[in-house]
């Protein structure tokens, strides 16, 4: 199982986290129906880098953004959500 470096808790087992979605699929209540359908259901699924929203559900409960290589599972650039880069 993957090892994900939580910005607060350090490297932790994948089982403590929940994958939420690719960052580009985040929708807001004021998105139009068309924009919503596009973001939720019509996404590219490229091989390679994916910028993703995860939650450290069974750790610090924080939301984090990270880049995962969908071919190799290499994980880079992990940031607490909303953190100034």
């Amino acid at each position: 199982m993957m090892l994900i470096p939580c910005p607060h808790c350090g490297p932790r087992a994948h089982a403590e986290f929940t994958f939420d979605r690719p960052v580009e699929a985040i929708t807001r209540p004021d998105d139009t129906a068309d924009a919503l359908v596009r973001n939720l259901f019509s996404r590219d699924n490229p091989r390679g880098h994916s910028r993703e929203l995860w939650r450290h559900t069974y750790g610090c409960r924080a939301w984090i953004a990270l880049t995962r290589d969908t071919a190799t599972h290499a994980i880079t650039d992990v940031q607490a959500w909303g953190a100034k880069a």
Partner: peptide, 10 residues
């Protein structure tokens, strides 16, 4: 999860 998502992400 939803409450946390709305509160922390949105």
């Amino acid at each position: 999860g939803l409450i946390s998502y709305v509160r922390n992400v949105l």
